[in-house]
Amino acid sequence: MDISVKELEHSYNRGTPFERNALKDINLSIPSGTFQSIIGHTGSGKSTLIQHLNGLLKPTAGSIQIGDFLIRAGEKEKRLKALRKHVGIVFQYPEHQLFEETIEKDIIFGPLNFGVPIDEAKQRAAKLIKQVGLDESYLERSPFDLSGGQMRRVAIAGVLAMKPSILILDEPTAGLDPRGRREIMGLFHRLHQEEGLTTILVTHSMEDAARYSDNIVIMEKGGIALQGNAEHIFADSDALKALSLDVPETVQFIHRLEERFNRTLPQSVFTLDAAVDAALTILQKEERS
């Protein structure tokens, strides 16, 4: 399902002295099956934006088209529940949403709400618990006996169990240690490719955004400041610095090499291997000359 956001505007506490414009003039199109990252400082409107994509927040002005669902300011979309079946959100610290006695019951909570037969829901749970890296024997255990990282995996399984075609991830690795971070991002990347999901990642990690995204949006004060593919976004380090955002380390490295060796290097270097290759080309060429 393609997503198309047009002139979206949202203000909190409208009509009270606490009114605050959280989003303004957002135009964004996310084609089906792409990986979209959203970057920005805390309070830039990222979370507000993604909550519009499954009707948790209603636009104050503008519209959101998702497949054949249309959400418009001032109108009620009656099929919100049907929309939410298609759009799964993994919220920040999703482990806080666990509530059932057993892990299995928690994972099938979403599917059952959307009318999935219980047998099928359980099958999904059995498959997903392994996919998120836990043993099937965990299904009968209480989610509250797990470590923080394991709880997060269970919560993620609970969202995936709804089989959404659009998966929204709001800083899914916040607070995890490096190994946990790598594993969780690896899982989402695999799912994105294998299941053909549309993935929307809200993140502070420039490295993740650069590595996985087809497109990146940078938000600032409720609006879109920059938008394009990784190469385009990270080509202009000055624009990012002006927004006090970092450039991925690989890109910083390339820029330093270019400066020191007075050479031009390929720009779309977003992995360690590519960075090492760039260093090697410099060293080898210098040796030959």
Partner: peptide
């Protein structure tokens, strides 16, 4: 937050 998270799961 929790209400939103559960609503997103169809509650």
């Amino acid at each position: 937050k929790i209400m939103k998270a559960q609503s997103a799961r169809g509650a």
